[in-house]
Design a protein around this nucleic acid. Structure first.
Lengths: 252, 252
DNA sequence: TAGTGGTCTAGACCACGGC
DNA sequence: CCGTGGTCTAGACCACTAC
């Protein structure tokens, strides 16, 4: 029997939406608590009177809303919700203490720290002269309670990168630059959100297409010479950025 | 014939992923330009040798990545990419001129401006005394070139809301507060990203689960008395926030 | 009327987890 | 071994768009 069509005159709401909305409300009302297991796809299909394909579509919606996660061979589980705060003013600067304040153990894994030949966009941001073809790329994974929550890619001009080689393995901070005589005078940044690509999905262990926060930054010294630029890509389900502004900084 | 299983020893990559990745690369390499129509689901299925269900799964991935959009009865089209910048320091303050600088016509539609009885979270943020049970809610839709890109919900203490009743219909800005004698001394905000719910999907015309940027804000006067709080919910595929920081503001 | 995407089915095989 | 989610099929009906 193909397709169970809607009774004439009944609401036009697709079954997969009815199912996902019902489950969503049950999760938000605590019928299913964080960590709880939902009924199996087979059982849900039987109790709603639909095929497994339709149930799977409803579950896919809940995954996209960040409410549940599936585990092959085990089942469907309600995800715990809680976000970690990053400060926009000093990203990753007091990373450890910032997380400690929130009751979380932070750590940084350097994935690579190597000289590379950057693409034109990075060259432009660092205002590299034509004679300089090399920058240092520091790629690191940021973990909270041993769960990856962000990737940071930082690009340093060659001289700075070489000088800081031994200092940056344990994570980058603006302070590391300052201690080594590179004084940051100003910085600019931008915050956007993008859906997770297949690559990001593998690194950050999130569903494909789930929101990621991307923080682009660029810092200069007094002579307006770029010291570092980069981007921090973080799981939007686990992180947010906060900022405080005084009167002088507001555009009033 | 059920399921076309993989040849023994071949890569384990699902067909839907092979298809979506191939189309993704073709889009990024310009084989399909923004605005172009992709082959129909039927044709894609035929050319890849898979069922339409599998093609639809691949297309669903491209939609989640924000690369294409479907139109019933018409086809699958490549989405144009371009983002509008909001300033974090003065959100919505110079909204019109900010967008004009980017070559975009901005407009604001007030959805409602009414006294309401807020939930405890808003009460706490505005530090309402127990005797005050009313705040003004201003809800508005922000359009760029007549396309909705954001929703803003602003909550004012009763006295301020009543005083500004006639001024706020044309959009809220910090400046409106200042002109009327409510001087903002400081403000704080936070930026996060959430997947679009069914409600947000309808208002902002985005796919379910696509990333939204949420900016929470709160502003005080000299006596640390809250003047306004609220949140701006914007389409992450059309907006980003930028911020500039001077040395004194960096945590170095 | 033809073509497109939107929804749904019944059933299949596979890979993983736990008993 | 069984139960779970992961992938896929072949075919159906519907709603919308364009000619």
């Amino acid at each position: 029997m193909p397709m169970a069509r809607q009774e004439p005159g009944s609401a036009r709401t697709p079954m997969h939406m009815i199912i996902s909305e019902k489950l969503r409300k049950q999760i938000q009302n605590g019928v299913y608590a964080p960590g709880d297991q939902l009924p199996s796809e087979f059982d849900l299909g039987r109790s709603f009177g639909v095929s497994r394909t339709t149930v799977r579509r409803a579950i896919a919606t809940l995954i996209r809303l960040g409410l549940v996660a599936t585990q092959q061979g085990k089942g469907i589980f309600v995800k715990p919700q809680s976000k970690i705060s990053f400060s926009l003013a000093n990203p990753l600067t007091f990373f450890d203490s910032e997380l400690a304040d929130q009751g979380i153990t932070g750590s940084i894994q350097t994935i690579q720290y190597e000289p590379i030949h950057p693409d034109p966009e990075i060259r432009a941001r660092l205002k590299l002269p034509a004679t300089e073809t090399t920058v240092y790329l520091q790629e690191k994974l940021i973990l909270a309670d041993d769960v990856p929550i962000a990737i940071d890619l930082a690009y340093f001009p060659e001289a700075i990168g070489a000088a800081l080689k031994d200092y940056l393995h344990n994570g980058f901070t603006y302070r590391t630059l300052a201690i080594n005589g590179y004084d940051i005078e100003s910085a600019e940044g931008s915050l956007e959100s993008r859906p997770a690509s297949y690559d990001a999905r593998d690194l950050l262990e999130v569903p494909l297409g789930s929101p990621l926060l991307v923080y682009h930054y660029l810092a200069w010294d007094k002579q307006k010479k770029p010291l570092v630029c980069g981007e921090t890509i973080s799981r939007a389900d686990r992180t947010y950025y906060s900022v405080g502004l005084k009167r002088s900084q507001l555009g009033i």
